[in-house]
Design a protein around this nucleic acid. Sequence first.
DNA 1: TAAATATAGTTATCATGATAACTATATTTA
DNA 2: TAAATATAGTTATCATGATAACTATATTTA
Lengths: 146, 146
Amino acid sequence: MFFLKQLPTKAMVDKYSGIYCPEYAEKVTNQLKMMREASILVRQLDTYFASHNMSQLKFLILMVIDRELDRDWLYAVEISERLDVSKPVLSRAIKTLTEKGYLSTHKDSKDGRAVVLTLTQSGKSTLTTLLPDYFKILTNHSGEEQ
Amino acid sequence: MFFLKQLPTKAMVDKYSGIYCPEYAEKVTNQLKMMREASILVRQLDTYFASHNMSQLKFLILMVIDRELDRDWLYAVEISERLDVSKPVLSRAIKTLTEKGYLSTHKDSKDGRAVVLTLTQSGKSTLTTLLPDYFKILTNHSGEEQ
DNA sequence: TAAATATAGTTATCATGATAACTATATTTA
DNA sequence: TAAATATAGTTATCATGATAACTATATTTA
């Protein structure tokens, strides 16, 4: 999350960085602007998911399982290859999704350590319900602070 | 924070959104790409600040006080006008910064509710120390996942 | 093939984000 | 001018991010 509402002026960047170069100041403000815009969008999405007792991470977990082309399941470790999140956070989110009845888990027959994760019917329909407005929020976003 | 490493293909966006429009799919992937890029950058900055026992929020608090043109202090409520963060989170961050000796606080003479926040010498030098590499991280960022 | 190492996943703990509800003071309104 | 409302800031509580250290099983190496 990036909180700064008013970006620093070029003069401020020059002074603070000690580098008096228009391209440098422009690059800095562009990056700050991007972080700000993304933060606003992430927050909108978080609010949306929270109103459905979900979170972005949980939604993305359902999505990466669903979008798998050749299988209808993933190992947790495969999810962590697709989502850039720490193992304990992923572990907890999977536990919550299982408790909610969105994921079914069973031990892998070949590897005693691994857990096979499949979407339940409820998980699939939750994903399907959430998707349209998810895209709507993404695309309606103005790119401006309101 | 946005975790998805591999963006969905155009075909996936079409199917998931039910909207078969190239501009729509492109807008979606652009927004996802932006969130991903910003998340990577925010994470780099968080790591940087953590290595100095700081956080982005605490850094920005010091910065908005320092960059004030006509005064060398701000009320907490003024900081919350400049930073898009909830009051309790701001309150806690200010408390930590005061305990670290980076901020000095005293009651306002006119308004018994308000607290006047000023940078200490240590707060100023911490800000000055952190600024150059902060800009370096912002500008060195490749925009690619590594 | 036994010992060492790697891998899958969990538990404990902490930092930092949020909202709801609060205290204390200032301002507005009837 | 007393009562109602607004404002500044805090406390309690929860969700969700992280790392460190762990268990259990699989794989590699001597």
